[in-house]
């Protein structure tokens, strides 16, 4: 049910009661879902802890939640072997963000350009398909050779991972613009440039935004893999270092930190998207 039914002024006292009951039911359901989620989390963590302590699974390989928590605590309080934890997070975020921005800008520009200019699309299309078919993560070692241990090589791996999904979505978005809208704007007097900037780009934004969500995850992967292969700072290095000292808890702890970082970034994007798409009808019946 849409929120309107809940807040609509009721015509009669009978209705008011029913409306209230419905609101209460909706609220109760929300709490129930939330409580079940928390319970599930604790059940899984508890089971893991118990299995590890009872030595059903090997605690050396699988670690256990309490040890992971201790590891995070140690990192936060005493710092890591490479410096403070915040510095590692910052490095990874910085590389991912820079790679993401470069990849997104390049992807959007090229996608829109190819979507609008038939000739370019016909000429470049096959090459882009070939590049996309490459498993791009194998480029990370090459970037390490080219750009060294510093952030540049990680930024480069993030860029190649981000570019393609963004490019294809922008391209598709520019291609699928409502022909009527383009015709109408041309009749109203829009130049080619105006059609691109005021019709094609706005209608492609929802396509582009879908790819932004996915691609930020890719940027993080690019940065982490780059760091894992060779770096002086970063969460990926933390994973590599923990692995090198057979510290399973360290690997898991770094993963947990990464998950939190990724979720925060995702939340920020969703917030921006809501601000940007005020013109869109609200999704009906979706609670997320």
């Amino acid at each position: 049910m849409s929120p309107e039914t809940v807040t609509a002024p009721a015509a009669s006292p009978v209705k008011t009661e029913r409306t209230q009951a419905r609101a209460r039911a909706a609220r109760n359901r929300k709490y129930l879902v939330l409580a079940s989620r928390v319970a599930l989390l604790f059940a899984v963590l508890g089971l893991w802890e118990w299995l590890a302590r009872a030595a059903v699974i090997d605690p050396f390989n699988f670690s256990m939640p309490s040890k992971i928590w201790d590891q995070i605590h140690t990192w936060v309080v005493d710092g890591t072997a490479q410096g403070s934890l915040w510095e590692q997070i910052w490095y990874t975020l910085y590389e991912a963000l820079l790679g993401w921005i470069i990849g997104v800008v390049a992807g959007v520009l090229l996608g829109i350009a190819l979507g609008r200019i038939r000739f370019l699309a016909d000429v470049l299309g096959p090459y882009i398909k070939v590049l996309n078919a490459l498993p791009r993560i194998v480029l990370a070692p090459i970037f390490l050779i080219w750009f060294g241990l510093g952030p540049a090589s990680k930024v480069a791996s993030a860029v190649v991972l981000v570019f393609f999904p963004v490019f294809f979505n922008a391209f598709q978005g520019a291609r699928e613009v409502d022909r009527n809208l383009v015709a109408n704007s041309r009749i109203l007097g829009a130049s080619n440039r105006q059609v691109t900037f005021q019709v094609v780009i706005p209608s492609a934004t929802s396509w582009i935004f879908t790819s932004l969500h996915v691609s930020f995850g890719f940027a993080l992967i690019g940065a982490i893999v780059g760091e894992y292969i060779g770096a002086t700072k970063g969460l990926g290095l933390l994973v590599a270092a923990s692995q090198g000292t057979f510290n399973a808890a360290g690997v898991y702890a770094a993963m947990a930190i990464l998950a939190v970082v990724a979720l925060l970034a995702e939340g920020l994007l969703t917030f921006l998207e809501k601000r940007l798409f005020r013109w869109k009808p609200a999704e009906s019946g979706a609670d997320r």
């Binding site: 009527n180 706005p202 013109w279």
Partner: peptide
């Protein structure tokens, strides 16, 4: 030339006022 299309052809991301302003602004 002015053309009122058979299908809906307003810009969904523009407000009503901005939609009507589009023509003069383009020109």
């Amino acid at each position: 030339v002015g053309f009122v299309f058979q299908q809906d052809a307003v810009f969904p991301w523009r407000t009503v006022l901005s939609n009507v302003m589009a023509g003069p602004r383009f020109r």
